[in-house]
Design a protein around this nucleic acid. Structure first.
Lengths: 174, 174
DNA sequence: TAGTGCATGTAATGCGTTACATGATTTC
DNA sequence: GAAATCATGTAACGCATTACATGCACTA
């Protein structure tokens, strides 16, 4: 039970600013969810582990009668985070049900298979809308946070264009 | 325990050609692994479930003294597969540790952060090499199998260009 | 006063990988 | 005869989601 990649996501966010578990979840959903999702079922237990390891320190920060525990990174935690940042493994996992359907689309009537491709395009569109929506009233991000955000936008735009090209190709052929 | 997306991947491959569990694993690793991975621990139990459901039929096809069980799709299985193909959900899950590092790279010395971006580029390169390697001595694929294969190639090439653009931008700025 | 958002958490379940065990056949 | 490949399978584990339970505070 050493640290997993989810550990670093959570620790990294707390390094950016002290946060509660609820905060961590909200920040993830508004910044890295499209390439690194996390649920409460991971976040709360992980926070406890991180505190036990001395990488973060919890502080009781109740607001009125409402319980609240805010965690900050410790020097040890910061050192551990730097160690991970120095790593080079580029583990990427993709699960794309739309590509899976397209892979098996040769048995389908052509207009139906074309529909799958159009649906894929629509998927990119929705992701783009979601990402563009995040930008509303957002403060100016630090350079690399912004870089990753632009990766998301660019990827969606590329995906839409790719689908358009392939749709045109199919129309021409069929 | 209804069918999951892994069910359709396995069923779809068997629909393309009758295969053993071992075959399924090999075919996955040579065609869809980059967007849909699967291990023996999924494949063999899933084959048993599919047979119990009557979607595939197993046939004893031992080669010499070596046990071997080849499965073919049944009419019921084919109908179920068509039903899934008619679906429109475009569930995409991405876990990209390299993007995660970049997201937290603002605390790093610039040359180090640039190194992360270069490492990302290298990751795309390796995936591209892997995909290009698959092409050696491969028969001509059906149109949509080929389309999905080209998606992989095009995605890697786009990713490499994206990294190059961002690297140039950083060099110009820093 | 009803609805939304804030806040913390757990239990059950599902999905998937890793690591192992077994043994035959082919190839060098 | 050693190594690689073919072939099937399971047990243990880890990772992650879903669904639920609880209750306070703010706002329309």
């Amino acid at each position: 039970m050493g640290p997993s990649a989810a550990t670093w996501a959570i620790l990294g966010l707390i390094a950016l600013e002290p946060s509660s578990g609820y905060d961590v979840k909200r920040i993830i959903d508004r910044s890295i969810r499209h390439f690194w999702a996390a649920s409460y079922g991971q976040i709360y237990p992980e926070l406890r582990r991180l505190e036990e390891a001395g990488w973060i320190a919890g502080d009781d920060a109740r607001r009125g009668g409402r319980a609240r525990r805010v965690y900050s990174i410790t020097p040890i935690g910061r050192a551990a985070l730097q160690g991970w940042l120095a790593g080079r493994e580029t583990r990427v996992e993709l699960r794309d049900e739309s590509l899976l359907r397209l892979f098996f689309a040769d048995t389908l009537p052509l207009h139906h298979a074309v529909g799958l491709l159009a649906a894929r395009r629509e998927g990119y569109r929705q992701m783009l809308d979601y990402l563009v929506g995040l930008d509303d009233g957002k403060a100016v991000d630090p350079p690399f946070v912004d870089l990753v955000y632009r990766w998301g936008l660019d990827y969606c735009r590329w995906g839409i264009e790719w689908c358009d090209r392939e749709l045109a190709r199919l129309e021409q052929a069929g």
